[in-house]
Design a protein around this nucleic acid. Structure first.
Ligand SMILES: Nc1ccn([C@H]2C[C@H](O)[C@@H](COP(=O)(O)OP(=O)(O)OP(=O)(O)O)O2)c(=O)n1
Ligand SMILES: [Mg+2]
Length: 1055
DNA sequence: ATCCTCCCCTAC
DNA sequence: TAAGGTAGGGGAGGAT
C-alpha cells in the first residue's frame, strides 16, 4: 500500500484493473531468459516502436482494412506481439498495449486463453492472430467471428474458503535487528535534532538486479484465476488501496495471494523542517507531501481442507488438484515454515527485521531526511551561494566495496580472500545481497539467487547478515564525508555524492590557467585519498571513489576505481571513457531501456552519438531520450544537492505470504495497515491518495514457487483512491487515539479495513511501539481522528473542493454506494470502523483498544459494490468524500471494484456468510440504517447490491455534477446519524457552501446540497436524538447560505 | 499544450 | 529453507 502525499490536487481515484503479469519462472534469476516471454517483455519491445503514427505514415500504401478497430494482444502469439502491432497499425487499426478499462478496445487477440482470462475478457471479441494475418493477406477485413477464440469454460469459481481461522501461536521473539537498534545513530541523531519534527523518510532501494528470475521486479500481483476445475485460485499478492478492508478481505480469501502492498499518498501536510520555503519552522507542522504507503502481503495458497464456512456453497472439492488453501495448509504444517510466513502473528516484524531491502530503504530515507535537514539549517545560517561561473565542478562518488560482504567478513577474516557472499541461507532460493571480489571472479553478482551462484562457484562461503554493523560502518562513513563540510547527497547507506568543488579552488588566483586546473584536479585526488584512508581506518573496510565533473562522470569513474581505488575522469578523457561503456552501464539504463536501444542498433554508449536526439526521444520518450543523448557525451544536467521532499510512503511484503484462511489474510492486511499508519505518523504526513496492490498467483504458476516462500509468478492488481481529507483536525477524537491529523485519512482507510476485519482478533501486537494497536478491535472507524497529538493538528481540512475535483465516475460510484445503503438493500454496512488509533509514539498513545467506542465511531461501511455484479473488470472508481469521514468506505468499494471479479464475488459471498452468521443476516438489513454495532465488528459490509437506487437525485436534474458531493454528504449523515454532526463539520460545510455561493456563484449547487441533506435528515426516522441535532444543523447551514446569498445581493434563496 | 492517472522502470 | 522493499522519474494515453 502506498500513500501519496498529495499536494493539493484533487484527489481522484481511479480504478483499476490493471493486471499485468510478470513471470518468474524459475530460478534463473538473471536468467537470461526472462522466460523469454512474458507478456511484459513482449510488450516492452513493442513499446519501442511505439510510434503508431510513425508506423502508419510509413505504411503509406497499405489498405486501411483495420480502420475502426482497436486491438489488444494477450499472451504469446504467433506472429509476435510486435508484428501484430505493426500489421494492425500499418493497416489503419488502433492498438492498445494495455487494457486500462477505459479505453475502448474492440478486439483482443490471443492464441488461447486461460479460464481466468476468458472471464476477464468475456466482454470482448476474442480473436486469433490469424485473423489479422489473413485479413492482411486478403487485403480486406475478414469476419472476425470465424477466428473466434473458444474459451474454455470459465466458469466456475470456487470459493475458497471459509474463514476458518487458524490460530497460530505467537512466539514473539523479537530479536529483530531493529529492536536492537534503538540507539542507533540515525535514530538518535534524528531525534536529537529537530526533535520530532523531522521527517524521516524512508525510501528504499534495493537493487534487484536480478529481478526475480529475470523478471521485473514487481512481482507482486494478484490475480484471480480459476482452476481448471473451476476453482478459483488467487494467488499472488495484492495491494489494497483504498478500501483496505475490502482488499484485505479479498486478499485473505484468496488463498493464493502472494503479496500485498498498500500505498498511501500523502497529503500535503507534513510538517517539514525548514527546508523548503514553505512552512518553516521546525515544527511539526504539516507539510505537504505526499507519500504513499503501501503494504504488500504475500499470497498464500492453501487449499482448504474443509469446506468453509457453513453454508455456502460447498466448497469444493476437486480432488486432484489441491486448492491453494489446501496447499498452504499442508505446507504450514511444518512449524518452521509456519514461523516464517504469515501464519506467524509476528511475521511482519520478523520479516522486516530480516529484510535487507527493507533496511536499505529505511536507511536511505533516514539519511535523506537528515541531510535535508542539515542542508536546511545550513541554508538558514549562511546563504551564500556563490557560484562562479566558469568554475569546473568536482564531484566525488564514494562507495564501499562489496559493502555487506566486507563488513560481514570482519567476523570471518579467514574468508577474505575466498569467494564469499552475504545471504540468509544456502538454499537455492536464497538471495545474495553482496559478494566479494573473489566471488565476482566466478561471475557471482549481488542480487543473484544462490542456485545460480553455486553453479558458478560451488565453494562459496555464505556469511550471515550483520545489520547493526552495516549501520555502524555507515555512520562512520557519513561522519567522515560530512566532515568535509560540503554538500552531500546520499545514494545509499554505503554510497554518497559529495561536491568538493569549493575545496578544489586554488588557494589564490593562479596566473597560469592550465596549472590552476591541474592543481584543482590534484586537490580533488588528495581529498579522495584522505577520505579513503580515513574511512578505511575507522571502519576497516575499503571504499572506492570516482571523481568527475558531474554525477554521471563521478559514477563512471567509480566503476573504474573499484576495488579499493579511486579514479578521476578529466575533461579530455570523457568521450573516450564514456563511449566505450555498454549502454546498460549508464545509470538509469537496465534491461528495458537497454533492449530498446539494442533494437535500434545501439550497444555501446558511443553508438548513441550516431543517433539524432529526435530519434532517441522517439524511441525512449522525451526525457529519457534527451538524458541518454546527453549521457553519451558525458553531459549530466542533474545537480547534486536538492533533496526532494518525500512524496509517498508505502509498505509491502511479497514473501512469506501463505494464507490459509480469511482471518489470517485479514490480520495480515491489518498489520500492514498499521505499519503504514505508523510510518505516516512517524513522518508526520498525511496521505491523500491510497493505493493498494495485491499479487495473486498466476493461473499458470505452480503452487510451489521456485523460491522458498516466494511469490512466484503473479498477476497484480492495484487500486488507488483519493482520500479526502480530513477534517480538521480536532475533531473527534475517537476513543482512542487519534491520529494526527495528517494521517488521519489514510490511516483511516486502513483502519477501517482493518477494523472491519479484525474485530477483535487478537491483538498480538503491533510492531512497533508506536503503533498501535489495533485496538480497534472494534471496528469502528473513526475518521479522522485526530488529533491528539500535538497540537497541531494538522490542518487538514477537508476540502469540499477536493470532491469536486473527483472524476465523475468516482462520484457516481460513491453515490451509488450510498444509495444502496440507504435503500436498504444492501446490507450494509457497517460498521464502524475503527478508528483510528494511532497514536503517536511519543506520547500517548496507546492504542487503543477497544472500546471505547466512543462516539465517534464511525463506521465504515462497505460498500455495496454495485459494480460487482458481474464480471468484468471493473472499473471502479472511487469516491471521495468530502467530508471525509466517510471516505474510507468509499474506498472499499473501489477496492473491490478493482479486484478481479472472481475475487469480488468470492469476497462478497464470504461476507454475506459472515454476516449472516453473525448478525443474523444481512438480509435483514434493510432499511436505512443499520447501525453497526459497535461491539461487534463490523463485518464488512459489503453489499452486494448494486443498484443504485433511486433516491432522489439531484443529478438527474443535472444541476451539479457533484455526485460526489452528494455522496459525501450522505456519508457524513450516515456516519453521524445517531449522534448528530460535529460542529466543526457543520462549520466546514457552511464555509464551503458560502464559497459556492460567493466564489463559485453556483446557487443551484448550494441549494442542491442543502436539499439533499434535508432529504436525508427528513427521511431518517430512526433516531430522534440525532435527528434533532441534524435539523438544527440544517437551519444553521441554511442561515449561512442565505447570508452569503444576500451578500451577493440576491435576496433570499428558496430553500 | 497541459494535466492526470496508471503503470513501468530503475536503483541500492 | 528465507526474509523478493521502496521511492521517484517518467512514458502512454485519455481528458481538458
Ligand atoms: N541486489 C542488491 C544490491 C545491493 N544490495 C545491498 C548489499 C550491498 O553490499 C549494498 C550496496 O550495494 P552496491 O551496489 O554498492 O554493492 P556492493 O557494495 O556490495 O559492491 P560494490 O559497490 O563494490 O560493487 O546494497 C542488496 O542487498 N541487493
Ligand atoms: Mg558499494
Amino acid at each position: 500500500m502506498r500513500t501519496l502525499l498529495d499536494k493539493n490536487s484533487k484527489a481522484v481515484l481511479k480504478r483499476i484493473e490493471a493486471h499485468t503479469f510478470q513471470d518468474e519462472d524459475g530460478d534463473e534469476y538473471e536468467g537470461s531468459t526472462f522466460g523469454g516471454f512474458g507478456d511484459y517483455f513482449r510488450r516492452k519491445k513493442i513499446k519501442l516502436q511505439n510510434l503508431d503514427a510513425e508506423l502508419r505514415s510509413s505504411a503509406g500504401d497499405k489498405p486501411p482494412i483495420f480502420r475502426g478497430i482497436v486491438a489488444h494482444v494477450n499472451g504469446y502469439t504467433q506472429p509476435s506481439l510486435n508484428d501484430l502491432h505493426r500489421l494492425i497499425v500499418t493497416h489503419g487499426g488502433g492498438f492498445m498495449q494495455y487494457l486500462d478499462g477505459k479505453t475502448t478496445v474492440t478486439h483482443i487477440i490471443a492464441a488461447n486463453l486461460t479460464p481466468k482470462k476468458a472471464v476477464e475478457f468475456r466482454r470482448y471479441r476474442l480473436v486469433k492472430p490469424a485473423w489479422i494475418v489473413d485479413s492482411v493477406n486478403a487485403g480486406k477485413l475478414l469476419p472476425w467471428d470465424e477466428y473466434r477464440v473458444i474459451s474454455e469454460a470459465p466458469g466456475q469459481r470456487l470459493l475458497g474458503f471459509s474463514q476458518g481461522k487458524m490460530v497460530s501461536q505467537v512466539n514473539v521473539d523479537r530479536s529483530g535487528y531493529r529492536d536492537q537498534m534503538e540507539t542507533s545513530w540515525y535514530s538518535t541523531k534524528v531525534k536529537g535534532i529537530a526533535d520530532d519534527i523531522d521527517e524521516k523518510a524512508t525510501s528504499g532501494t534495493a537493487d534487484q538486479e536480478g529481478n526475480f528470475d529475470g523478471q521485473p521486479i514487481e512481482a507482486i500481483t494478484e490475480a484471480v484465476s480459476e482452476d481448471a476445475d473451476g476453482s478459483v485460485q488467487l494467488s499472488g499478492s495484492f495491494e489494497v488501496t483504498s478500501s483496505l478492508e475490502e482488499a484485505l478481505k479479498q486478499a485473505a480469501r484468496a488463498s493464493q495471494h502472494r503479496g500485498v502492498n498498500l500505498m498511501l499518498d500523502i497529503e500535503d501536510q507534513v510538517s517539514r523542517p525548514a527546508a523548503s520555503p514553505s512552512l518553516g519552522g521546525n515544527e511539526c507542522g504539516p507539510m505537504p507531501l505526499d507519500g504513499t504507503t503501501s503494504s504488500k502481503a504475500g499470497a498464500l495458497q492453501i487449499p482448504q481442507k474443509h469446506p468453509p464456512d457453513m453454508g455456502s456453497p460447498s466448497p469444493s472439492k476437486k480432488a486432484k488438484q489441491m486448492t491453494a488453501e489446501e496447499h498452504n495448509a499442508k505446507l504450514l504444517l511444518d512449524p518452521h515454515i509456519r514461523k516464517s510466513s504469515t501464519a506467524n502473528p509476528n511475521f511482519l516484524q520478523q520479516f522486516y527485521s530480516e529484510s535487507r531491502l527493507h533496511h536499505l530503504s529505511t536507511w536511505k530515507a533516514e539519511l535523506k531526511s537528515r541531510l535535508q535537514q542539515m542542508a536546511a539549517e545550513a541554508a538558514a545560517s549562511q546563504k551564500p551561494a556563490k557560484r562562479k561561473s566558469g568554475q569546473r565542478s568536482y564531484i566525488l562518488h564514494v562507495d564501499f566495496d562489496c559493502f555487506f560482504c566486507a563488513v560481514s567478513l570482519k567476523n570471518s577474516p579467514d574468508y577474505i580472500d575466498k569467494p564469499a557472499v552475504v545471504a540468509h541461507g544456502s538454499g537455492t532460493g536464497s538471495e545474495i545481497a553482496s559478494c566479494n571480489y573473489p566471488a565476482r571472479a566466478f561471475g557471482v553478482k549481488n542480487g543473484m539467487w544462490m542456485k545460480q551462484a553455486l553453479t558458478l562457484c560451488p565453494t562459496i562461503k555464505v556469511l550471515p547478515y550483520d545489520f547493526p554493523a552495516y549501520e555502524e560502518a555507515s555512520k562512520s562513513f557519513y561522519e567522515a564525508i560530512l566532515g568535509l563540510g560540503c554538500i552531500v547527497q546520499s545514494v545509499s547507506v554505503d554510497e554518497a555524492l559529495v561536491d568538493i568543488t569549493a575545496l578544489c579552488l586554488p588557494d589564490r588566483e593562479s596566473d597560469d590557467n592550465d596549472q590552476g586546473i591541474t592543481t584543482e584536479q590534484e586537490k580533488a585526488n588528495g581529498i579522495a585519498l584522505g577520505l579513503r584512508r580515513h574511512i578505511k581506518q575507522t571502519t576497516g573496510c575499503e571504499v572506492s571513489i570516482g571523481i568527475g565533473a558531474n554525477i554521471l562522470l563521478a559514477k563512471v569513474a567509480l566503476r573504474k576505481a573499484k576495488p579499493a581505488g579511486q579514479h578521476q575522469i578529466t575533461p579530455e578523457n570523457v568521450l573516450d571513457i564514456v563511449g566505450e561503456l555498454s549502454v546498460q552501464s549508464l545509470p538509469g539504463v537496465a534491461y528495458s531501456i537497454g533492449s530498446k536501444l539494442e533494437e535500434i542498433g545501439v550497444k555501446l554508449v558511443k553508438d548513441i552519438r550516431l543517433l539524432t536526439k529526435e530519434r532517441l526521444t522517439t524511441v525512449l520518450g522525451p526525457k529519457t531520450g534527451e538524458k541518454i543523448w546527453d549521457y553519451s557525451r558525458g553531459i549530466d544536467k542533474s545537480e547534486l544537492g536538492e533533496q526532494a521532499v518525500r512524496k509517498s510512503v508505502s509498505a509491502e511484503v511479497s514473501w512469506g505470504i501463505r494464507f490459509i484462511s480469511q482471518a489470517e489474510a485479514e490480520d495480515f492486511v491489518q498489520n500492514l495497515c498499521v505499519e503504514l499508519q505508523r510510518r505516516l505518523m512517524e513522518q508526520k504526513v498525511k496521505g491523500k491518495q491510497l493505493t493498494i496492490k495485491i499479487m495473486k498467483k498466476a493461473a499458470d504458476a505452480p503452487l510451489n514457487p521456485p523460491k522458498h516462500l516466494g511469490h512466484g509468478k503473479c498477476d497484480t492488481y492495484t487500486k488507488s483512491t483519493a482520500l479526502l481529507l480530513a477534517t480538521n483536525s480536532t475533531q473527534f477524537v475517537l476513543p482512542t487515539q487519534i491520529d494526527p491529523a495528517v494521517l488521519a485519512e489514510l490511516p483511516h482507510d486502513i483502519r477501517s479495513k482493518l477494523m472491519a476485519q479484525s474485530r477483535s482478533r487478537s491483538a498480538s501486537r503491533t510492531s512497533s511501539p508506536g503503533i498501535l494497536s489495533r485496538s480497534a478491535s472494534p471496528t469502528s472507524i473513526s475518521r479522522r481522528g485526530l488529533t491528539l497529538q500535538q497540537n497541531e493538528p494538522l490542518p487538514l481540512q477537508f476540502d469540499p473542493e477536493v470532491f469536486e475535483a473527483l472524476p465523475e465516475d468516482m462520484k457516481a460510484e460513491v453515490l451509488a454506494s450510498y444509495s444502496a445503503q440507504g435503500s436498504g438493500r444492501q446490507q450494509a454496512i457497517l460498521p464502524q470502523s475503527p478508528r483510528k488509533n494511532k497514536t503517536r509514539p511519543p506520547k500517548k498513545l496507546t492504542p487503543t483498544k477497544k472500546r471505547g467506542r466512543p462516539v465517534g465511531s464511525k463506521n465504515k461501511k462497505e460498500d455495496p459494490f454495485p459494480t460487482l455484479t458481474q464480471s468484468n473488470f471493473v472499473l471502479g472508481k472511487s469516491a471521495d468524500t468530502s467530508v471525509d469521514s466517510e471516505g474510507p468506505e468509499l474506498l472499499d468499494l473501489d477496492f473491490l471494484a478493482a479486484l478481479p471479479e472472481e475475487m469480488r464475488l468470492e469476497i462478497l459471498a464470504e461476507n454475506r456468510q459472515k454476516r449472516l452468521a453473525k448478525r443474523g443476516g444481512l438480509a435483514a438489513s434493510n432499511l436505512k440504517k443499520r447501525r453497526p454495532p459497535e461491539p461487534a465488528e463490523p463485518g464488512q459490509i459489503k453489499l452486494i447490491l448494486p443498484r443504485r437506487d433511486p433516491r432522489p437525485t439531484f443529478t438527474t436534474r443535472g444541476l451539479w455534477k457533484g455526485d460526489e458531493l452528494r455522496g459525501t454528504v450522505q456519508m457524513w449523515h450516515t456516519e453521524f446519524r445517531d449522534d448528530g454532526p460535529l460542529s466543526e463539520d457543520v462549520q466546514a460545510l457552511e464555509r464551503y457552501l458560502r464559497r459556492v455561493v460567493t466564489d463559485e456563484r453556483n446557487l443551484s449547487k448550494a441549494r442542491g446540497v442543502i436539499k439533499w441533506l434535508t432529504w436525508l435528515v427528513d427521511e431518517d426516522e430512526s433516531t430522534d436524538n440525532g435527528q434533532k441535532v441534524w435539523l438544527t444543523a440544517l437551519e444553521t447551514i441554511k442561515g449561512s447560505v442565505q447570508v452569503a446569498v444576500q451578500e451577493r445581493g440576491l435576496g433570499i434563496l428558496d430553500l
